[in-house]
Structure formats: structure tokens, C-alpha cells
Simulated scan of single mutants.
Amino acid sequence: MEFELWVYGLLFFIAVFSGFVDAIAGGGGLITIPALISVGIPEHVALATNKLQATFGSFTAAANFGLKGMIDYKSIIIGIIFTAIGAILGTIGVLLIDPKLIKYLIPFCLIAIFLYTIFRPKIGEEDRAKKMSSKAFYIIFGILIGFYDGFLGPGTGSFWMFAMIALLGVHMKQAVANTKALNFASNVVSLIVFIAGGQILWILGLIMGVGQMLGAYLGSKMVIKKEVKFIKTMFLIVVALTILKLVYDLLFK
């Protein structure tokens, strides 16, 4: 597919904004996927192209957080492995399971996360005691959230952040940083599957990838500099918009 120059320019700047938001609180796909579909790209091609450009963003954010020493690689390496496994299973599962079974469940999970975060105002502002071992956490949630990311995707970053804060007791800034490394792992696995399927618009995906890198760099820099309350506000906004998007899709599509 070929597009006019203004379309490439518009999607580039949309990718910048998406990468910026995604680096702070996740949810970048809620911005880029509708934008890709709105310019006439078929849904399956839009999803594949989105994975390409999103991989650039998650890599850039993870690299920036890693250089600042914010990612606990020793703890999350097992999570990266099992997230990749989960993403493979999710990609296969989407061919075998009716997506509506999961689509109806996800909004309720996100609503619970939204309410819990609001009514626990101090959550994520300081380290707390773990409620389970890191190894068990990353094996279980790597498979579950990796599967979901390969299967559907919206809200993946929110699930990771909330689970780390609630069960591992980590500070919200570290949760954001660790989430980007895990997102990158599942993005790469999904991208490989899409490449094998030959569904990617490479020129558009690479142009948007550059935008994602710029936005992700700026967003990750802001996470490093800003207080937790700002990150938490962005997190709640993204979760709320994800809920609205999923409910709208269920009711009107």
C-alpha cells in the first residue's frame, strides 16, 4: 500500500505521541491502531504494522531505563523468558479461541485495577513487602500476561505495572521500567510471527518506528524526572481510556 506524504507525516507524529504516553503508562496501541485503521489499512495489517513500530518504542524506553539503572535485569530475566513463551501461546491461541471470551473479562479486570489504585492512594509511592517470590511471580504472570499480549494486547502494560506494585511491592517508577523490558520481549515475539505472515507495511512501520523512538525517549526521560503522583495520574488516565475503548468495541462492533 502507498500513501500520500501527509499521511506518513501524520502517522509519524501520532507515533511520537503514542511512544511518549506508552513509555510513561502503557496504552500506546490505543492511539496507533485506530490511527492506522482510519487511513484505510485492513485490521490484520494494522496490527502487524503496529507491532513493528511499537517494538522500536519499547526497545528505546527499556534501553533508556536500563542505562539509568532502573531495570532489575537479575529479577526479570525469567519474566522475559516466560513472557516470550506466553506471547507465542497467545498468538497461537487467537487462532483457536473465540476472542470474545477474553474481551468480556478484560474490562472488569481493568475496572478493578482502576478502583484499587484510586482507593489505595499511596500504592506505588514506596517499596512494600513482597506477597510472593519474584521467581514464581514472573513465571506465572509471564505466561498469563504474555499470552494476553499475544492474544489481544490492550492494557498489557497496565496489567504488568499493577501486578508488580501489588504483589512484588516495587516502587511505581521501577514497575514502569521493568514493564518496558517485558513489553519489548512480547513485542519481538509477536513481530516475528507477523513477519512470517508477511502482513507488515515496512516503510510506514519504520517511519512510525522512528517516531516511537523519539516519543519513548522523551516519555522515559519524564518518568525518570517526575514524581510518582504524575506517573500514577497518567496510569489512571490510560487505564480509564482502555476500559472505554474495550467496552465500546464490545457494544458497538
Rank of each mutant, 00 (worst) to 15 (best):
194 F>K: 02
159 F>G: 06
47 L>M: 11
39 V>H: 08
239 V>A: 11
156 T>C: 12
209 G>V: 13
248 Y>G: 00
3 F>Y: 12
125 E>A: 01
250 L>A: 11
150 G>D: 07
113 I>M: 12
22 D>S: 15
23 A>K: 05
155 G>L: 07
202 W>C: 00
228 V>D: 07
129 A>L: 11
179 T>D: 09
145 I>F: 07
105 L>S: 10
205 G>F: 08
86 G>S: 09
76 I>W: 03
253 K>I: 02
142 G>H: 00
243 I>A: 03
166 A>N: 07
81 I>E: 01
70 M>K: 15
114 F>L: 15
127 D>R: 13
119 F>W: 12
198 G>W: 09
242 T>L: 01
218 L>Q: 13
42 P>L: 11
67 L>F: 13
166 A>W: 09
126 E>C: 00
251 L>R: 02
168 L>S: 12
64 N>H: 14
100 K>A: 11
190 S>K: 13
56 F>M: 09
110 L>F: 10
27 G>H: 03
124 G>M: 07
125 E>D: 13
220 S>M: 04
58 S>D: 13
127 D>C: 02
47 L>T: 05
89 L>D: 04
38 S>N: 08
169 G>Y: 01
120 R>K: 14
169 G>C: 12
196 A>I: 14
158 S>V: 07
141 F>S: 04
101 L>F: 15
85 I>E: 06
6 W>S: 14
77 I>S: 13
50 N>K: 04
246 L>S: 03
10 L>D: 02
210 V>N: 05
63 A>H: 04
124 G>R: 03
194 F>C: 08
178 N>P: 07
99 P>K: 12
198 G>M: 12
